[in-house]
């Protein structure tokens, strides 16, 4: 087990199902994929990740499935020709995995209330109190740039998914242009949302390079460092060097 962060507390969970939901482009998939890796690193025996994104055609967690599989993570995605399909395919294995409750299951859900609607069809399988549903917040996205927008997002997703949030993930970023200040401003927004919605800030996530700065030494919430796994084509080989 490798700790990537200096003295920060990594997020831990007592629940066996982690549902990662959020606005479009909040960074859900990247969070879900990194969280799965983190769970394996932290010693969870069985980790599975299911890609429930039926709204995005590209940049879905399934694109990292090879890397995840190599870490021993079970990936539940459409395969073969359906891997790239923009069809709303929900595999029966997803329902099975939710109901079996073996190990930890990470659900990577599509963006906004539209993407979260898929949970509604599965809502009968979730046992009350057995899951964490986390809202990934990016304050640099147009519809979640302020408190009202975030609260609306919570409302919209809860009504379309028929599930209740249990926490907030502060993931404010601007991709390669992210600065420590941007991430900290985002955390402030997440705290405001937390106060108004009564949901705890479950953790802060951000690119490893950013959140390893000293500015984050005194942050009082757990921190999940992210390593980008869903890359753009011109980024891939540059990263290899």
């Amino acid at each position: 087990m490798i700790s990537l962060v200096k003295q920060h507390r990594l997020p831990t969970f007592s629940k066996s199902i982690l549902i990662i939901v959020g606005g479009y482009g909040s960074g859900k998939s990247e969070v879900a994929v990194n969280l799965s890796r983190q769970l394996v690193n932290a010693g969870s025996a069985q980790v599975a990740i299911a890609d429930l994104d039926i709204v995005n055609p590209y940049f879905r967690s399934r694109e990292a499935s090879e890397q995840l599989t190599s870490l021993g993570i079970r990936t539940i995605n459409p395969t073969g020709g359906q891997h790239y399909a923009d069809l709303p395919i929900i595999l029966p294995e997803v329902k099975g995995a939710i109901e079996q409750r073996q190990g930890v299951l990470v659900l990577d859900v599509g963006g906004d209330d539209v993407g979260a609607r898929v949970l509604s069809s599965l809502s009968g399988s979730f046992e009350e109190g057995a899951y964490e549903m986390l809202l990934v917040l990016n304050g640099n996205r147009p519809f979640t740039a302020d408190l009202d927008g975030c609260l609306k997002m919570i409302n919209d997703i809860e009504s379309s998914s028929r599930l209740k949030f249990t926490g907030i993930v502060s993931n404010t970023h601007l991709l390669e242009e992210t600065t420590a200040q941007i991430a900290l401003d985002g955390l402030e927004l997440a705290r405001q949302v937390s106060r108004r919605s009564d949901l705890p800030v479950a953790f802060l996530s951000g690119l490893k390079e950013i959140i390893e700065c000293d500015e984050f030494d005194n942050v009082d919430v757990p921190i999940l460092p992210l390593e980008r796994l869903l890359l753009k084509p011109w980024e891939s080989s540059a990263g290899d060097e």
Partner: peptide, 9 residues
């Protein structure tokens, strides 16, 4: 499609 789908600042 990349232009349409990718996120950038």
């Amino acid at each position: 499609g990349m232009i349409g789908q990718m996120m950038e600042a």
